[in-house]
Each structure stands twice: as structure tokens, then as C-alpha cells.
Amino acid sequence: MSATLTVGVVTFPGSLDDRDAARAVTASGATAVSLWHGDTDLKGVDAVVLPGGFSYGDYLRGGAIARFSPVVAEVIRAANDGMPVLGICNGFQVLCEAHLLPGALVRNAGLRFICRDQQLTVENASTRWTSGYTEGETITIPVKHGEGRYVATADTIAELEAEGRVAFRYQGGNPNGALNDIAGITNAAGNVVGLMPHPEHAIDLLTGPSADGLTMFTSVLKSLVAA
């Protein structure tokens, strides 16, 4: 794994998990680069992570204000050129609001904030962020959100299912009422992935339920080396 590979981690006002995301990047063998919401360039990074939290206080809708920040304009441009982008939790909401991924994330069906270790089925192991997994593999990583219920039009859901673009599905109980138990999806090209659960909180057995989340960060490095 080349130490010269760099992965940017964006910090918005209200981001919470940027430090854990940067730590996961470092643990995967890459160099983490801090990006600020007001940045107008991506400092030459090879990939970008939009972390969890409550960007701009979740005002209006989760991710709705962050989506218009200067750095996200650059992320959209880079993603459309093929750069790997991972959105975790609030980052997933930003990707949906930015239309890099279809659908939206709304209030949990049970109205409760859910914080627990969650089993997921890896449904698509061919994206830039999931290639280190095996299709059908079960992984365990934490979820922690109040607005994580994935919804989209029936046509969009059918398209995601038909094209194999559901990346992760909740297993052993759907925490939020997401349609089709969808926990994470990918764009058609496989470079943009968003998910509600937190892989960056599951990179070390000392502090997480597993180290299953680290594979997302090592997957993208392998794909960058191969590219």
C-alpha cells in the first residue's frame, strides 16, 4: 500500500466523525488530508470521505445546507470525473441532497435515535469502496442516527435493485424502516458510495464491535493502486 495515496476528510461546521474517519484512513495505510467546508480545491487528494455528524446543525434537512458548500461543489465535480467518494451517515445525506446518489434519508420510522451494533449484508462487492468484501458477506458495524430511513420512488428502488446498486442491506432487523432494508447504495459507476452505518467506528476490536469497517478504506486504496 503506497503511503503517497491521500484521502481527504471533509469537516463541516457540526461534523462529528471526521477525526475517526481520518483515523480509519491512516489505519488503512493512506495519508488523511483535512478539507474544510469552505475550501475551493481538494488539495490533490485521491479520494474523499464525507463524514458523519450534523453539518450546519441539520438545519432545513440533513445535508441540505452542506450540499451547497464550496468544497462539495468540488467533490461533485471530482466524483463525476470518477474520484472515489464515500459518504457516511450525514455524508450519505449530503450525497443524496447533492444528487450524486438517488433518493433521500428521512426520520426513522420509530422516531427514535438508534445507536447499536448492526449486522449488514454486503450486496455489491464490486464498488471502489467494497471490493475487499465478498458478496453476501455479513459484517457488523455501528449505526447511530435519527434520520436514516432510506426512501426513493418505486422506479428508483426498482432501478437500484435491478442494477445491483444496493451496496449494503440491514440484516437481523431494520433499524429505521428503510425501504428494502437499504443501508447503503452506490452510483452506477461504483465510485460514489453512501451508507448510514459507520465503518470508521469499526476498524479496531479495542473500540468497535469488529474491524469490518476498515475494509472499506483498504478497498479504495487497492482500487487506486490498481487504477
Binding site: 441540505a64 441532497e97 426513493a152
Partner: peptide, 8 residues
């Protein structure tokens, strides 16, 4: 553009 999300 912003106040509503047409998906939902």
C-alpha cells in the same frame, strides 16, 4: 433548489 427536496 433548496427549501424542498423533490424526492420526499
Amino acid at each position: 433548489a433548496m427549501l424542498a427536496n423533490p424526492v420526499i
